[in-house]
Design a protein around this nucleic acid. Sequence first.
DNA 1: GTGAAAGCGCTAACAG
DNA 2: CTGTTAGCGCTTTCAC
Lengths: 336, 336
Amino acid sequence: MVKISDVARHAGVSPSTVSYVLSGKRSISAETRERVLASIRQLGYRPHAGARALASSRSNVLALMLPLRTGIHVPVVMRFATAVVTTARSFDHDVLLLTQEEGEEGLRRVADSALVDALIVMDVQLDDPRLPLLRSLGRPSVLIGFPADATDLTCIDLDFRAAAEACLTHLAELGHRDVALVGSPPEVYARRTGFAERVAEGFTATAERLGLDAGFYPCEATVEEARGLVARLLAERPGLTGVVVHNEPIAEPLVRAFQSAGRRVPGDLSVVAICPDEVAEQAEPPLTSVAIPAEEVGRRAVELLMGKLDGESVPAATLLPPALTARASSAAPAAD
Amino acid sequence: MVKISDVARHAGVSPSTVSYVLSGKRSISAETRERVLASIRQLGYRPHAGARALASSRSNVLALMLPLRTGIHVPVVMRFATAVVTTARSFDHDVLLLTQEEGEEGLRRVADSALVDALIVMDVQLDDPRLPLLRSLGRPSVLIGFPADATDLTCIDLDFRAAAEACLTHLAELGHRDVALVGSPPEVYARRTGFAERVAEGFTATAERLGLDAGFYPCEATVEEARGLVARLLAERPGLTGVVVHNEPIAEPLVRAFQSAGRRVPGDLSVVAICPDEVAEQAEPPLTSVAIPAEEVGRRAVELLMGKLDGESVPAATLLPPALTARASSAAPAAD
DNA sequence: GTGAAAGCGCTAACAG
DNA sequence: CTGTTAGCGCTTTCAC
């Protein structure tokens, strides 16, 4: 293994000079720098990560804890992860993958052992058991999602309340008066997942403000449950003309079920989804939707973390504004 | 930060004794061990990962390089990843996430800097540019998938050739004589992905052996392409009664398209898929399928790697036998 | 069964 | 602008 002293000898300088060339923490004459860089290249030198972490108390590794539980849409998680890794690399950091199952103990382990410098956690519950730990860890962290009490924490997410509002406003502007929210599976609400609740709140509040007839229906993410719910909706709410879906896997099955029941989409029933753009675009018909900006959330989570690592003060809360894209699944309701 | 010398002082022993208690590399009297462990617990001691890596030249971290390109089914990738992380943890290792985009340079970086002890790479092409690097890296690696030339490499995967054979044998035993393979998108074959080619080979060879009429049809993973292909199949192969699908996203759309064209499944047309069990179970009708054992592949990849790290000699090739589960999408062809 | 001490390879004062 | 040197916290000989 080639080490810093080998490079130093080869370039005719001291080890510290090599170190400073690499870190840029003090100015080096152009010629020495070039000579050192040439030696580094020739010898194929790579600083030893462990030695560097020991000497500098910086590992240049971030922890990313991902959810792998039910009710979470996997492709969205992967897109977050990709954005996090890619952005971390652009800051010369690597990413250590933790599963949600590792819980608080996992976070403590990688933080206390100095394996990572900072942490990103996804799928934050309103009353998440990891919160006290993250506050006391002594290492920067960023939460993707908002807990009930975010004191002393840095959070980022799509503004789900505004997203629900945008969906409903869109339907109301088209003239819909009787609307329903088809939500995530009941277990998601049971464990008090922030984004799911915020959608429900935003929906309810906006419906009230706009004076709409509104109902809220959590739903398992299976085709059968979607069919069952459609049957129920048709029976219970004969005047229903607008549906907001916040449950990726069943968005399309739901449309299918309405069509099987003889309802045209968007002729008789308009559907608006909160889901990734690809899901909305691939659907038949393409769905009007508010996108979940996974890439942007992941990228900005890392940027926030880097700011904190550099000692900057960063905003405690970042709510990304929703963007609604009108597609073929929504239109004015048929005149009675 | 509490360090090993703090623990040593607290327990009234030397640092080396603490180290040996933790590593178990030499025998310690029961009483000292208990005393040391108590001190560790009381002080909340965690060995510094970097210091440990520096002193032992072992980081206890594995690199996992995941594909994020088109034509790959994301949920399957996530299940691999989960299995890898979970298994790695059971061996007291962590997992560093790399994206395929980082390529050879990324692998070299984490290996040469001693950030990781060993590497797992997925989505191996038949002629993968990372192969020479992996051979010369001086660190153990395991490939998920088989390249054309696996000399000096350790590989594991489902036996895709046998999987195709199992599908076709199943159809043949039911009495089908005119069959088709609906394959992955053309780009997957263009970049010579091993598993896709092996399915095609296994299909072709088995069809020949069994004397079946057989055709091979790569297909983009979109609903339109699936519909287009069905139209083509109905026109070109009027006698077709059995289809093997190796393309998760369009398995169900394909069935839908056949049904729209008036073909009953499995009455007129039997469908067998190579896909994860959940996809097969969720489909309507549930699909007879050969499962992709993501969990087992991920777990065993880590086990192989651990064996190599321990200096054991492990099998160079591990081909997991396919398991076909008969479901509602296959039956004997209608009598003419 | 336990301790002392020499590094592991790098960074960051300190010194000039 | 550059060099010298003292650690960073741990593992592992060597010694008893």
